[in-house]
């Protein structure tokens, strides 16, 4: 009796290809762009695809930063001129918002513009 049949080779090759393809994920690991929030010596980093609200306290009070639907903006600030709030939503790598009075700096970092879902949804 034969040990291997044609289907064994087909399945083996298909699976080997799939396994090799999974190594592509290593090139993608930096994944989603990240929102960096700097205040004084501290820095906070968040994944842009996860919605959240972060409150940072600075010299004049608090700065509230919202990350929603892969975009970021300053929703509230205790400073007087509110330039940061007026700056509106940012969603691309390299874009930033700054609040000078409260010493808060928000920057989107990453390799590329966000694609919906990132690597999570593209495989499987």
């Amino acid at each position: 009796m034969k040990v291997l049949k044609i289907g064994d080779f087909v399945i083996a090759i298909l699976s080997a290809v799939l396994v090799s393809l999974s190594f592509l994920s290593y090139g993608n690991l930096s994944g989603n762009p990240t929102v960096h929030i700097k205040s004084g010596a501290n820095e906070w980093i968040y994944d842009i695809v996860h919605d959240r609200t972060v409150s940072i306290s600075g010299p004049v009070g608090s700065t509230v930063i919202e990350i929603i639907d892969s975009r970021v903006h300053v929703s509230h600030s205790d400073c007087s001129n509110k330039v940061c709030v007026a700056a509106g939503w940012k969603d691309s790598v390299g874009e930033w918002i700054i609040c000078l009075p409260n010493n808060v700096f928000v920057l989107i970092e990453g390799d590329r513009t966000p694609t919906p879902g990132g690597i999570d949804d593209t495989a499987f």
Binding site: L29, G31, T34, N42, E43, W44, I45, Y46, D47, H50
Partner: peptide, 18 residues
């Protein structure tokens, strides 16, 4: 650690540990 979240503590290579 690959999904950054919160205060940046230190880096492993280019990977920020939060």
């Amino acid at each position: 650690v690959f999904q950054p979240n919160g205060l940046h503590l230190f880096d492993i290579g280019s990977l920020p540990v939060t």
